[in-house]
Design a protein around this nucleic acid. Sequence first.
DNA 1: AAAATCTCTATTGACTTAGTAGAGTATTAT
DNA 2: ATAATACTCTACTAAGTCAATAGAGATTTT
Lengths: 153, 153
Amino acid sequence: MKLSLRGEYALRALLVLGLNHTQPVLRIQTISQQQNIPKRFLEQILNDLKSAGVVESKRGVAGGYRLARPPEDISLATVIRHIEGALAPVSCVSERFYEKCSCPDEAKCAIRSVMKQVRDAIVKLVEKLTVADLCERARKLQEIHAGPVDFMI
Amino acid sequence: MKLSLRGEYALRALLVLGLNHTQPVLRIQTISQQQNIPKRFLEQILNDLKSAGVVESKRGVAGGYRLARPPEDISLATVIRHIEGALAPVSCVSERFYEKCSCPDEAKCAIRSVMKQVRDAIVKLVEKLTVADLCERARKLQEIHAGPVDFMI
DNA sequence: AAAATCTCTATTGACTTAGTAGAGTATTAT
DNA sequence: ATAATACTCTACTAAGTCAATAGAGATTTT
């Protein structure tokens, strides 16, 4: 039931890009340093997100990445599905990555029925959540934790 | 976000054991044949479930496995956690398998905050669901799909 | 004693993951 | 033009995981 590091890095990078959505572009190195992600690895990931239409890039001296769409139009579901594949815990209940399983009869499979519920719960959440939500949360969490300290200074 | 085959096999085996809870014991081979699970692989899995206190075994000629507790006392969460480890999609939000992640500040991490929600949704479901629920569903699905056909014969 | 069945440990091949490497292409500033 | 910068594309690798398979041993019943 795990998200790979690759997937986590993708989300972290998109969060940074979302928070800097006003900027023309952000360099890989900037994101990599800010988020403790190996640069060459992040390169691959961002490139991959580009092929998903989630980010776009500009080459050359003033180059970098930025979101290809408004943050509120990029759902976590889209991102995770592109990087990881199925959201469903077993592929026989996946909508877009369906694969037959080895059970004797899929239609009568109780595991399948239960896993469908789990899938739905996950999908419902991550389809609603967007990069914009991530950004909002990041700002809130920043306030809560940094705010009081700032006042004390 | 995937369950391993091992985990799926475990649930399938427990379903069979649950449906035959009245029997003294069931042989590995019986379960293996009924569910298309490689026998030697299932051996390992059942043995593992035994160490989790979920099933108990009897050796020798009339030996086999049975549930160690009533089906309604065995939650899917217990089983999956024992076979797979964390239910949480990232280990920094796992209650029992916590591991620090590489993000700059866990307390301010928006990904973490979101993943906590996903974790909670999953945990809420699989903690409530038990082997008894699996059995009930299996019986219902059997009725729905086999019933009409039986009438037609 | 023999047969059946679970038990324990080890091994294997295929695959995935996380990361590294190198050469190449586009863009900008000078 | 040319150098510097930054993305791009492909390949590689070391480590780990997964799904089995295998063999020898222990226990129980007949």
